[in-house]
């Protein structure tokens, strides 16, 4: 009481610093101790992590599938080309008549001719079935015009279609857009599925970590009761379990990422071959840095939340009634 105020203040400041240091070192001790505990029970830990990893792998995998399909649908707006297949027995004369008609039309902005020989060559190149074509007496592939309409307007497209239908030698008009539209539909379907799965499997991860934490709490009942009587706060008693939840989530997420990378590695060769056949701009894409960060942070967060829920329920039951 009689001590000068500044000494007292200095002492309080020192006490506060000691307390903050102790709090920080308690966090560090908890973080390290929980890892030691995980390593002390390698089989149980590995199984929990594997379950979490597999639960997270599924949405991650679908997400990757979706972003690979997205490469095609992203270009959807740009392409509304028509492919105009010509009759197989068409004469050079008729071909140039069709070309003239299209060239002079305002509805067409650009035009590309693919002869039946070139079509056969392309087909042989990307299908690897050149021998089959060679064995045929005649080239079965028709010549075609790839038409880029000048306007994406529906009315303009239908008058273009009318014009084409009126030309002699035109066999089949294929709107390239249609398969892309279907692809976009599939892609949307995958996106929705990913979202639903993420929600469902997030709950699964919550339950898995919650249940593991519940077991850990039960195993440490005696310790919790003693600490409670010695004046440990809820936060102090909960801390090791929350760290455990974070580690479960984080390492489970890492497990999912490793499984995903393994699968992608295994799929790279056939998937790249398939994608490149659609054009050199298409490549197998993985989860990417952001995706991986979201996966790891999200799973760590879920692990923490699962632990938090388990801890608040079970600690309350163990401590003061």
């Amino acid at each position: 009481m009689n001590r000068p105020a500044n000494t007292k203040g200095a002492r309080r400041e020192r006490d506060r610093r000691i307390r903050i240091n102790a709090w920080a070192s308690n966090h560090r001790d908890c973080a390290l101790d929980t890892i030691r505990r995980m390593l002390a029970q390698p089989v149980a830990t590995a199984m929990t992590l594997a379950v979490i990893g597999i639960a997270l792998l599924l949405p991650a995998l679908l997400y990757v599938a979706g972003s690979n399909l997205g490469q095609f649908t992203d270009r959807l707006e740009a392409t509304n080309r028509l492919t105009v297949y010509l009759a197989p027995d068409i004469s050079e004369q008729s071909i140039s008549e069709v070309r003239e008609a299209l060239d002079s039309s305002e509805l067409v902005s650009s035009l590309q001719f693919i002869s039946s020989e070139q079509a056969a060559e392309d087909f042989a190149r990307w299908s690897g079935l050149g021998d089959v074509l060679d064995s045929l007496a005649d080239n079965p592939l028709p010549a075609a015009f790839v038409v880029q309409p000048s306007s994406a307007d529906a009315g303009a497209l239908s008058s273009l279609q009318e014009l084409l239908n009126g030309l002699a030698g035109v066999d089949l008009i294929q709107v390239d857009q249609r398969w892309l539209e279907r692809l976009a539909g599939i892609s949307r379907l995958i996106d929705r599925t990913v979202m639903t799965l993420v929600v469902i499997l997030a709950f699964a991860v919550l339950f898995i970590t919650g249940n593991s934490i519940r077991t850990l709490i039960a195993n440490r009942q005696a310790e919790i009761r003693v600490m409670d009587l010695m004046g440990a706060t809820r936060g102090y008693m909960a801390r090791p379990f929350l760290y455990m939840g974070i580690w479960y989530g984080l390492f489970g997420g890492l497990m999912a990422w490793l499984l995903l990378q393994g699968m992608l590695l295994f799929l790279t060769e056939p998937a790249t071959a398939l994608l490149v056949s659609y054009g050199p701009q298409y490549q197998l894409v993985g989860l990417g840095g952001t995706g991986a960060a979201v996966l790891l942070l999200g799973s760590a967060g879920l692990g923490w939340l699962g632990a938090k829920l388990a801890v608040s329920r079970h600690l309350r039951a163990l401590t003061r009634s």
């Binding site: 000691i18 307390r19 240091n21 102790a22 709090w23 070192s25 308690n26 005696a222 310790e223 003693v226 600490m227 010695m230 004046g231 440990a232 102090y236």
Partner: peptide, 21 residues
Amino acid sequence: LFDRSVYDNVALPLQIDGYDK
């Protein structure tokens, strides 16, 4: 607590109270 040493048992209240090591 039989999962730790005599020392750690006695140190428990101090850990809880946030003493420096």
